[in-house]
């Protein structure tokens, strides 16, 4: 089991502070979802946790050890990250792309061992893309392609997997499909999952631990049913909303109130 923690972390771009003195611990073996309005720093935070973005202050530790003191390949064997900016090279096939997830376990010329092949096969199977192994990635649908990227991160065999908006560009069915897949990985392998999500209600349903961010700080964190209240939604998003129980999962369901089409009662202050 591994424990990823941010301690007093500050992050920014070209002198512009996005996050100042933030503390966060990813609960071990749980699914954490980070939500918040655009430009609140949630992606930057995730990138900082994966050491894709340099820290302006504070430190990030893995089991107590500062991750910046760690060789990058060693970190990549413990923390996997799927960024938004991934590129599938033209013509690359599914199995080849997934096998590149083995990089942190290989030497400089990337010699494949039978161990690598077994891990890649398992990753393809557990993401349900085994039958697509020989297909060019470019020919796949958006949902399939995202599964392939997840398979690549799985091939990395890390205890922690970070995902930056993995459901963006997917239709609602494929969003659920992907979150179900991540839930299975979490339950079957005990993988700690942390992801940035846009869709509040899916975040509330799928996360064990919900982190709500606004303007570079954490507004609230904890179990979704404790955290996601209409006050918190208002504070983070500046949005009036009803919060009712999700009829399917029982998790909080945010029903936003816009300026039009409000025929029902006003949301209560409490």
């Amino acid at each position: 089991m591994t424990n990823l923690r941010a301690e007093g972390v500050s992050l920014g771009y070209d002198g512009l502070r996005v996050i100042e003195g933030l503390d966060l611990t990813l609960p071990d073996g749980k699914i954490t979802a980070v939500v918040g309005p655009n430009a609140c720093g949630k992606s930057t935070l995730l990138r900082g946790l994966a050491r894709l973005h340099p820290l302006d202050g504070g430190r990030i530790t893995l089991d107590g050890a500062d991750i910046t003191a760690m060789p990058r390949k060693e970190l990549a064997r413990k923390v996997g990250m799927l960024p938004q900016s991934s590129i599938a090279p033209d013509g690359v096939r599914v199995a080849e792309l997934v096998s590149r997830g083995r990089y942190p376990h290989q030497g400089w010329f990337g010699r494949h061992s039978s161990d690598d092949d077994a891990v890649v096969t398992t990753a393809l199977e557990s993401t349900g893309v085994a039958e697509l192994a020989d297909r060019p990635v470019a020919e796949l649908s958006g949902g399939q392609r995202q599964r392939v990227w997840i398979a690549m991160v799985l091939a990395q065999q890390t205890d922690i997997v970070l995902l930056d908006e993995p459901t963006t560009f997917l239709d609602v069915r494929h969003q659920l499909d992907l979150l179900d897949l991540l839930t299975e990985l979490n339950r079957d392998r005990g993988t700690t999952v942390a992801m940035v999500l846009h869709e509040l209600n899916l975040a509330a349903r799928y996360a064990d631990h919900l982190v709500v961010m606004s303007a570079g700080r954490i507004v609230a964190e904890g179990a979704p049913s404790d955290v996601l209240t209409s006050e918190v939604v208002d504070e983070a998003f500046g949005l009036r909303a009803h919060v009712v129980p999700d009829p399917v999962a029982g998790s909080p369901l945010v029903v936003p109130v816009g300026r039009y089409h409000s025929s029902a009662v006003e949301p209560s202050a409490g």
């Binding site: 060693e74 990549a76 990250m81 799927l82 590129i87 990089y103 400089w108």
Partner: peptide, 23 residues
């Protein structure tokens, strides 16, 4: 020759290559 396998990771984007442990 030494760099050729690193280029395979770099082809996936700078972020993915970094996340896979490449400098």
């Amino acid at each position: 020759a030494v760099l050729s396998h690193r280029l395979n990771m770099l082809a996936l984007g700078d972020d993915v290559a970094t996340a896979l442990g490449q400098r």
